[in-house]
């Protein structure tokens, strides 16, 4: 059963495009990654889901309830982290937990302290003295502390150091294991790869992919960079599986569609000085899978 569902969801800002006919379905207990470059429509989609924006057309439902008309009921069981966490400068962690607890009708301080310990955040620090990363941690604590049925996180790790990113990922995994659903946006493919069961990609306001990570991985290919020992080696004809996008003197950069082993075998004895094979970042992925504004899939 889908805990979050949108059908032909459209939101425009006057003449400006926001999102167009977005169809999503997120099952309960899923770690769902919502990917896209900056300005693709991730935040607009999320803002419609959490009731900050009204859809221009189409519908968005969470727990089977309309996100605009039943916004209050939905929010009892939602934890939300905005992309750019801003809080009242006078607020400190303890006061925030007290206020949030009063609003939600339960004592959130014990759970908040536990989370603060994991995030290594001093709850007595006022927001005005906090760095962006600390604000992000407090925002995460406030989103997670009431153990919501659905977590909606807009780029949750963007300002965190790698250590804290790992903590966040660990917590999200734990929550998903307990049956909570996590819907989070990101433009970092690595993070999504580590975490998500399923991903949707948005570009130019439209969903261009919505599939499991395994399917996406297969389609993504590998980013390959080869540095040849000499010009003779660099003059080789690439194998069919390798699309060379850039040739610079002795260096090739491109995408490998297919398994790595035959490619490595092809390279062996051809005078390779240096080689890197890795997953492409999201921007590269988009470049390879989709062409132009029409988001036409590559054959």
């Amino acid at each position: 059963m889908s805990i979050l569902e949108t059908s032909a969801l459209t939101r425009t800002y006057g003449p400006r495009r926001g999102i167009e006919t977005v169809n999503l379905a997120v099952g309960e207990g899923t770690l769902f990654g919502f990917l896209g470059p900056n300005g693709a429509g991730k935040t607009t989609t999320i803002r419609v889901l959490v009731g900050l924006l009204r859809p221009t057309a189409g519908a968005a439902h969470i727990f089977g309830l309309d996100c605009w008309t039943n916004s209050e009921s939905i929010k009892h069981e939602i934890g939300y982290l905005p992309g750019d966490v801003r809080m009242q400068p006078w607020l400190d962690g303890r006061t925030a937990l007290r206020i949030w607890g009063t609003i939600r009708g339960r004592n959130l301080l014990p759970a908040g302290r536990e989370l603060a310990e994991r995030f290594n955040l001093d709850l007595s620090t006022r927001v005005r003295s906090m760095s962006r990363g600390m604000r992000q941690k407090l925002g995460l604590i406030l989103a997670l502390v009431h153990k919501p049925r659905l977590l909606v996180l807009d780029e949750p790790t963007v300002t965190l150091d790698p250590l804290m990113q790992t903590v966040v990922q660990q917590i999200l995994r734990e929550m998903a294991a307990e049956g909570h659903t996590v819907f989070f946006s990101s433009h970092t493919l690595g993070e999504v790869e580590q975490l998500c069961d399923r991903v949707a990609m948005i570009r130019g306001g439209r969903i261009v992919a919505d599939e499991s990570l395994a399917q996406l991985r297969t389609r993504a290919g590998h980013q390959v960079t080869i540095r040849w020992r000499d010009a003779e080696a660099a003059a080789a004809t690439p194998p069919a599986a390798l699309t060379v996008e850039k040739r610079e003197a002795l260096t090739w950069s491109g995408v490998l569609d297919g398994p790595i082993e035959p490619f490595v075998a092809w390279l062996s004895g051809r005078g390779v000085e240096d080689l890197s094979i890795g997953r492409p970042d999201l921007e590269t992925l988009f470049r390879h899978f989709y062409v132009g504004e029409g988001q036409e899939r590559r054959a």
Partner: peptide, 17 residues
């Protein structure tokens, strides 16, 4: 103006509330 409305409006209270 200061961007704090995001958190305020995503708490389980109606806007009239």
């Amino acid at each position: 103006d200061r961007g704090t409305i995001d958190l305020t409006l995503t708490l389980p209270v109606t806007r009239w509330g």
